[in-house]
């Protein structure tokens, strides 16, 4: 693909924006993994419904993991072309996953 060739050639941004952005996604992914571990830790107290929260956070972390390469290529090409398409869908699904975690968490706490 043209984009990945461009990514391989790198970009001219001394501010390393593509790197910083994919690192920010990576940190978010690790936060999601940590949060899933915390959910599992309290499985004995909250019971099986907590597995739903574990599933949501692990899935979100997995999606980030498998889109990292594409994200880096896209933002590198974006820097090269001086225009990058705002990643609306990624923002929306990440926020939705966090909102879902909150809603499920409230249900688990109130039901327990």
């Amino acid at each position: 693909m043209a984009r990945s060739r461009e990514a391989a050639r790198g970009h001219e941004d001394p501010g390393l924006q593509p790197e910083r952005t994919s690192l920010a996604w990576g940190r978010t992914m690790m936060a999601l993994v940590t949060v899933s571990a915390i959910f599992l830790r309290w499985l004995p107290h909250h019971g099986l419904p907590i597995l739903l929260l574990f599933a949501v956070s692990t899935t979100a972390a997995g999606v980030i993991y498998f889109t990292q390469r594409r994200r880096y290529s896209t933002s590198t090409a974006g820097i090269t072309h001086e225009t990058v398409d705002a990643d609306t869908s990624a923002v929306l699904w990440t926020a939705s996953a966090a909102v879902a975690l909150g809603a499920l968490g409230i249900l688990v706490v109130l039901a327990g």
Partner: peptide, 8 residues
């Protein structure tokens, strides 16, 4: 694009 990435 730098601002878009910073916003993200």
């Amino acid at each position: 694009p730098r601002f878009t990435l910073a916003n993200e």
